[in-house]
Every structure is written in C-alpha cells, then in structure tokens.
Design a protein around this nucleic acid. Structure first.
Length: 884
RNA sequence: GGGCGAUUAGCUCAGUUGGUUAGAGCACCUGCCUUACAAGCAGGGGGUCGUAGGUUCGAAUCCUACAUCGCCCACCA
C-alpha cells in the first residue's frame, strides 16, 4: 500500500504555485473535453454566458461563472458528458466605444478604406492633436474592433483558466465570428420566411449620441431634474380668439412640434374646448383639441400639448387622431431646419413670426433650444391671444423620471425612422407558456420574466444604426430616381451566409449596380447584439451548419445568468427557440445574485466600487474564491466579505493537513470491522446522499455546507482524534488495519465531495496516492461518490455509536478544559456520568473513547443528561510530563 | 403606483413538508506548543427569530396587516 512521506511535502500548501501546475495537467489530461458523439440523455449541456468583452472582468463575473463550473465538474463526475462552451460577446456598442477611446478614432461612411491601417502613423501624417479623433472607414473601424476584442479575450481566458473553469475551448465562439454571424443571419432568414419580422417607418426610441434606435429592453428610467413651464395657448373659433388655457410642460423646446391638445373628456374645465382649435404661441400653428381618457386631470394643469414626439403617448395620440407630423428633431439631436407657412403640415397663422422664432433654435441641441424657446415665451409679441407673455410664471423645478438608453448619456427621443422588428406583442401568452416549461432557480425569478412579458408594449426593434455587429442580410432595389424600394427587400439566400450587403452584391445583381438608378443598395444597419447572443444555444449546436449538433445539444440543460438580464438575454433566447424550434432553449435557468460591496451596494464601474479579482486571487487562491462563491445560494446577493475568503483558505490548508495525516499512515489497511469505523462510514454515507441530492437540485451551497460540517466536525475534530492511538497501535493489528482503511476511505470520499468546489487542493491530495490506486489520474475524472458505493460496508451494531463517541469525547475535553489540563494529558481515572441509553450507545466504542481521552478505561456513574450534555466526565489527571 | 425578495447572535449567513432546548463561521472571553494542522485544538458567553394580530396541542416556519431595506416594472404633460 502506498503512503506518502511527510518530509516530501512542504509544511504549507502554496496554492498559487500548485494552481499553475494543475491547470496545465487538466488541460493535458483533457478533463474538460466532451465527446461529440455522446447521446443527448447522457449529456449535460451548459449555455454559458458570453461575457461582454469590454475591458476587465470583475469579481461579480467570477462569482457567477464559478456557479457554472461547480455544476460542470459535478455532472462530469456523475458520468455525464458535459458540454461547457464559452463565447465572447464582442460585437456591439461597448466595443465600439472602447475602440473609439483606445485609438481615438471615429467611423464615418464615405471615407475610403485604408489597407493595413496604422492609426498612429496616420494621425502623425495628418498632424492630428491628441484630443482629435481620426475619421476612418467602417471596415477599418471593424478591424480595430477585432484587434481590441482579441486582446481582451486573451486576458479573460487567462482569468477563467486561473479560476480553474473546466471550459471546453473546442466550443469557443465569439458573437462576431463567422459562425455566429452565419447563424444570426440564418435566424433572420427563418424569421422572415415565417413572417415574424417586418420593417416599418415609424416613431422609434432613438439615442441621439449613438444615433441609433434602441429596444424597449435597453431602456432605463433615471430620475432627473426638470421644470414645469406654464404656457398660455389661444382657443380659436372661425379664426377668432375666443378663450385661452394654460398648459404645463417640461419640454417647451417641442412647442414648434405641437400638433394637438388634449384633456380628459370628463374634465369640466375643458369640456367646451373639444372640437375647437388651439393656436400655439410663438409658432401660431392651428392644432385640434380632442378628448382623451389617457389625460390625467390631476397632472399639471390637466390639459397638455401633443408633440411629434415627446413620449410614447404622443406617438399613440398622433396615430389615433391622425395628427400632422412635425418632426423638428434630427437624428443627431439637433433641431432641423423647416419653413412654417406651407400646406405640408407646417401651416401657421403668422408664418413670418413663426419662422423668425424657429430660426433661433435651428441647429441647436435640446438644452439650448429649451432655454431659447422659454425666452421667446417671455415676449408678449409671441402670444397666441394678444394678451401678455405666453409664459405665465417662472419655471417650477421638479425631479422626474426620464427615459435613457441604458448605455447612453442623453434622454431618448422618439424619431421617425425605418427599422426592422420581430413581432412579439402577439406572442406574449405563448412566451409565458414557454417560461412555465422551464425550471427557474430560484423559482420566484420566473415572476420577473412574466411581469416583463405581460408589460411589453412594442415589438422587438432589431436594427441598429451602428458598425460593429452582424449585418442585416438584405438589399433594396433602387428605382430610376435611385431611391430604395424598401417594400421590395431582397433577402440573402442561405448559401451566401454570412454576408455583408455593403460589400457583396444582392443576388441577381452585379457589384457595378450598387447605388445606381435601377441597381441596388445594401442595408446599412446591423442587428441588435441581443439578436445574436440570444442564439447562444443554436450557435453552440451549430444550427443549420454541416456539422449541426442540435440533436445532441439542444434543448440545453441549463442557462446560468444574472437576474438583471432576464428581460433581455433570457427573454430573447426563449423567444428565438420558440420561433425557430418551437421549443424551450433549455430546461433550467440558474440566476446568480450580485456581489455587493461592504455598504451593500451593487458593484458597478460607475460607482467605482469594483473589486478586481486578481488581487483577491493572489491573496487567497482560486480554491478559496470558489469556496466563497459556492457558499451562496442561487439568486442570493453576495457580500464581498474577506472573512469568507479566509475560511475558504483555511479549508484548503485543513484538507492538505488531513490528507498528509491520513495518507501518511504506513500500516496496511484491512477490512473495516470496528464499531466506531462502521459508525463513521454510516455517517459519511448520509452526507454523500445529502450532497448528491443537493447538487442535483443545483443547491451547491447545501452540498458544501454538509460536506464541510462533516469534514471539519465529524472527520478531523472527532474521528481522527478518536482513532489516533488505534491507528498506531501495535497491539491491535486488526483494529489498526480497520482504522487505516476507514481513514483512507473517508478521505477518498470527502475529497470527491469537495472536488467540484475546491478542485486544486483535492486533485493535489488525490495525486499522492489515490490517483495511482484508482487509475483515475485526476480526481475530476473519478466518479462522484454514491451511497451505493458504500453499501459493502456493514452498518454499525449500534446506530448511535458515532454520535455517542463524539459526545463522550466532548465531555472529557470539557472536563480537561475546565481543569486547565492539556488535552493530551494522561488520565489516572475517567468516570462518565450517563443515563442507561447513553451507556448503551457507548458500549461498543468505549476503547476508542478511553484511548482518545488518555485513559486506560472508562467507568460509569449513574446520571441524567443535562440540556447540553449527555455525558459528564469526572477526571483525575496524571502529572504533566516534564517539559524538554 | 404594480410586482418580487429580505428582515434570525456584534458581523456574514443556514434553518428542508410547522415538532424537543433556534444553528454555523467570523468576532469576543478562557484554556491548551497536542509528532496532520498555532493559518491549529478545546471550552465559554451572546438571540423575546422586524412589529402587531390570527390559525394550531405546538409557529423563525402558515395567514393578515404594518414597518424598514433591496430589486424588477410602470410613471416624461
């Protein structure tokens, strides 16, 4: 029997050094490799989240990615073929922004492409100052995006490797790579064919800084300062002013875009106005006054102006009432030039004054347009009633919620633009049905999904006016005026994918026909990044490709993700699987919590409270960080508490030392026969059962807690201490062999229970003896322990033997502690006070307890258990041995 | 305003379908250099389980209301 020499091992376990060793070994042994031919029912497939590659990973990533790896390692040990892919979400705005800052460049259309662009050289050539952006071609920009994301991906990969994530890098993908682009475009083709997508020119939420449309899911409200401006309008009948009213608006800059007035139909103050016309101050446009139940009599003055477009309700009113369109805001967030006075929707009763006023704001951005219009409203000459200044009082400052693109810095506007949409509003019931076929962990998170789905109010806008992303594979024929015929879209054919319509000619056309009358134009827009990342299951399974593995990988088993992206990633992924495969994308969704700083605030870059994992890893090691992550339930926010890393570190040290002790036993093992040993194995069997059941339910924190409690309490503090003398005893070879066998079996099983959580230290100890003994060179290739595996060990004669032994040794320690006697001091006499049951439970393990207590034998006295103690020890200690 | 979650020891958290006397770790106090481990071990103190009602033989656990904190959504006149 093999054993280790203590002298061969360092006194302390150097986790950082051993991590490097084991990461290399695992990769050599192919621990993470999956078998592509394994049947679906023997596979466990993880839809791992592709992290946004935009700089650095923070401790929150580590927290949730660890949760996935725990399951991957557990499932692998149970014999499942684990598919654990990794993607990089590198397309999209975060990368564009990063590239802009990193190289100080900006992409624009109609700029020539430069082969092998050297940004620095080009800047020098043009004599650009540091703060000036170099304007480059879109293709050049995309190439720079790739450079930056590839650098970041290397760093991310190193971090994942250091954490010991058993990712199968054969299944690596990036949302910008050919495979992802091909499958995203295939998804579009399929949706188009099934009539789930459409394009529409309509008012859409627009970010004026990024100059792109955004989807409902990417919108967030922010509390911002604003002001109510009370402005007087005139009411006209037959071109004569008959009355006036005052509206209260926070957006006076949209006055020129006012196309209607509304109030609640039951509002007595305004009942007489409906059907009449109002005239706007300053721009003298005649606009209809109509009733609407959407108007709230309690808000503002109860009557309000409808503009094209201030918000979502404006859009609805504009549609329902068939109002004029006066779009005054351009895509760049500046006021467009227009002339009042024509019949084209810009009619005015005083065009001259209207134009004079309007020209003051043309070209301005919203904040300055706002204050300019307010100035105009102070001028009585701009009154619509000829009765004093339109502005009634000084503006009243308020705080109110304003819609923002989640990555943007300016409020969202509604602009009329042509966009592509996926029809979702007609499928909310089906979506909720799909959600119910998926197990949510924790269950209450399902409610978030259902709330969001029920409250959807626009279809999914999937087109973005950006550069670095997957192109929409569509062209439009040009008429003889070179105008695109949007209603005759030419869709790419399946064999063309992936395709960039801006560089490849439309089917049936020649490149020379690009942009010329009677020719074609490529769709310049790209997809929303979620359009691609929502296909992560299909991408990993190579849906529709030659090596399609949908049959063996889809639907997947589990989607791990954060709960903040239920409405985006989870929602869209469920939608895609439903629309393409009429299936759930996975059977389970695991929602990890967030990492909170010590003030219980979410860690985020903007708050500047982000902890980078490198420092934590250097100090505590990957196993300790994994321990921290594993100790929180799914869905629970975790505190970044150093104390927990320390405990994880202590567990690693303890495992190392326990391993040294157990495997350092040089005596031969033999059949497990002693009562205490049998009782110990019975306890172990129970822990194995609980831990396995917990892992099956993704409750790794329960498995960890039970295993840890057993290891630390039952195994090291009690069992090893009870056994020490017998395991060295020359007089009792059978008992000694039984002890050694039990210690080894106990360690072997406990290591495997801990292996998914602390993979480095467990594999280290495993390698000393067990690797060779079992033939499994890595513990991560060994089998997860089962209760059945321990069935060959007979049950103890007395069910309570182990607990009784622990309780008795505790009583003896208490007595020694109270007399300030060293715990290993020999006892001249030892008498235990116990009731009959207590004596009976202890009868078969007396020798071990006596030996552990340092006594020749144990006497009993009649006693009754107290609240805390079954046994009370009475001791007479021997003289302390002389100190050396 | 709608929805969800949390509230247990000084701190961080467990507490299974209601069931003896509510647990762990950290911190604190006391003792112990014990040939696996002093980065250790042993012992100890510390909680009217957010508040108020209710159901029950029995409630941290189930019901109702309230309070505080957090999150999701809605709220731009």
């Amino acid at each position: 029997m093999k054993s280790i020499e203590f002298g061969d091992l360092p006194k302390r376990f150097n986790i950082n050094e051993r991590e490097l060793h084991w990461r290399k070994r695992w990769s050599e042994m192919g621990v993470e490799k999956r078998d592509p031919n394994a049947p679906r029912e023997k596979s466990f497939v993880i839809d791992s989240p592709p992290p946004t590659v935009s700089g650095s990973l923070h401790i929150g990533h580590i927290f949730s990615y660890t949760h996935q790896d725990l399951l991957a390692r557990y499932k692998r040990m149970t014999g499942m073929n684990v598919a654990y892919p990794m993607g990089w979400d590198d397309n999209g705005l975060p990368t564009e922004r990063r590239v802009q800052n990193y190289f100080s460049v900006r992409a624009e259309r109609n700029v020539p492409y430069i082969e092998n662009l050297d940004v620095e050289a080009k800047r020098a050539e043009l004599g650009l100052k540091k703060d000036r952006q170099l304007v480059i071609n879109r293709q050049n920009f995309i190439e720079l995006c790739r450079v930056v994301t590839e650098m970041d991906e290397i760093v991310f990969k190193q971090m994942f490797d250091r954490m010991g994530y058993s990712i199968d890098w054969n299944d690596e993908y990036a949302t910008i790579d050919d495979k992802s682009r091909r499958i995203a475009q295939r998804s579009f083709l399929d949706l188009y064919q099934k009539n789930h997508v459409y394009q529409l020119e309509s008012p859409t939420m627009w970010d004026v800084d990024f100059q792109t449309a955004v989807a409902q899911a990417e919108v967030e409200d922010r509390e911002k300062g604003g002001a109510y401006h009370d402005i007087k309008f005139g009411v006209f009948e037959e071109d004569a002013p008959v009355k006036s009213f005052v509206i209260s608006t926070t957006r006076p800059e949209l006055l020129a875009a006012c196309v209607g007035i509304t109030a609640h139909p039951d509002d007595e103050r305004f009942k007489g106005l409906f059907g009449k016309h109002a005239v706007t101050p300053g721009f003298f446009a005649k606009v209809p006054i109509f009733p609407s139940t959407e108007a709230d009599p309690e808000k503002g003055t109860g009557i309000l102006m409808v503009c094209t477009f201030g918000d979502q309700t404006d859009v609805a009113w504009w549609r329902e009432e068939g109002l004029e369109l006066r779009q005054i805001l351009g895509r760049n967030g500046r006021i467009l030039d227009h002339q009042f006075g024509g019949d084209d929707g810009w009619a005015s009763t005083n065009p001259e004054k209207a134009n004079e006023n309007y020209q003051t704001i043309v070209g301005k951005r919203i904040p300055s347009a706002k204050s300019l219009v307010v100035d105009l409203m102070r001028d009585p000459a701009n009154s619509a009633t000829g009765n004093g200044a339109p502005l009634q009082d000084e503006p009243k400052q308020i705080l109110h919620p304003v819609r923002y693109y989640e990555k943007g810095d300016s409020p969202l506007e509604y602009l009329t633009t042509r966009q592509w949409f996926v029809r979702m509003l007609d499928k909310t019931d089906q979506m909720i049905e799909m959600g119910r076929k998926i197990n949510w962990h924790p269950e209450f998170m399902r409610k978030r999904f259902e709330n969001w789905t029920e409250n959807l109010n626009v279809d999914w806008c999937i087109s973005r006016q950006r550069y670095f992303g997957v192109p929409i594979p569509v062209w439009y024929p040009l008429d003889d005026q070179s105008e695109p015929q949007y209603d005759q879209a030419i869709i790419a054919t399946p064999d063309m994918l992936p395709v960039d319509p801006e560089s490849v000619a439309a089917p049936g056309y020649d490149e020379s026909q690009r942009g010329v009358a009677g020719g074609f134009a490529g769709e310049p827009d790209i997809f929303d990044t979620w359009f691609t990342s929502s296909l992560s299951p299909q991408t990993v399974a190579r849906w529709g490709d030659e090596d399609d593995q949908m049959n063996t990988l889809f639907p997947m088993d589990v989607r791990p993700q954060g709960h903040d992206i239920i409405r985006t990633w989870a929602f869209y992924t469920i939608a895609k699987a439903m629309l393409h495969q009429e299936s759930v994308p996975w059977h389970n969704i695991n929602l990890s919590g967030w990492v909170l700083d010590p003030d219980r605030k979410k860690m985020s870059k903007s708050k500047g409270n982000v902890v980078t994992p490198v420092d934590t890893l250097d100090r505590f090691g990957a196993d300790a960080v994994r321990y921290w992550s594993a100790s929180f339930k799914l869905g629970t926010d975790a505190s970044h508490d150093e104390a927990i890393f320390k405990i994880g570190g202590k567990l690693v040290t303890k495992l190392y030392n326990a391993g040294k002790f157990v495997l350092g036993q040089t005596a031969d093992d033999g059949p497990i026969v002693n009562e205490l040993d049998l009782a110990f194995i019975a306890e172990l069997k129970e822990v194995v059962r609980i831990a396995g059941e917990a892992f099956e339910k993704f409750e790794f924190s329960v498995a960890l807690q039970e295993t840890e409690k057993f290891f630390w309490g039952a195994f090291t503090d009690n069992y090893i201490e009870l056994l020490k003398r017998r395991s060295r005893s020359e007089d009792d070879p059978a008992g000694r062999a039984s002890a050694v066998a039990t210690l080894r079996l106990g360690l072997n099983v406990v290591l495997r229970l801990f292996a998914p959580i602390v993979p480095t230290i467990t594999d280290e100890i495993w390698s000393w003896v067990f690797a060779e003994e079992t033939g499994h060179l890595s513990i991560h290739k060994a089998a997860w322990p089962t209760p059945e595996e321990l069935d060959s060990i007979p049950a103890p004669d007395v069910a309570g033997s182990f607990q009784a032994a622990c309780d008795a040794i505790s009583a003896i320690r208490k007595a020694k502690s109270e007399s300030s006697v060293s715990l290993n001091r020999e006892l001249l006499s030892l008498v235990l006070e116990a009731d009959e049951l207590g004596q009976s439970d202890l009868r078969l393990v007396l020798d071990d307890v006596a030996a552990a207590g340092g006594a020749e034998s144990i006497g009993f006295a009649k006693g009754t258990p107290t609240a805390d103690w079954r046994y009370t020890a009475h001791i007479e200690a021997a003289e302390a041995p002389e100190k050396k």
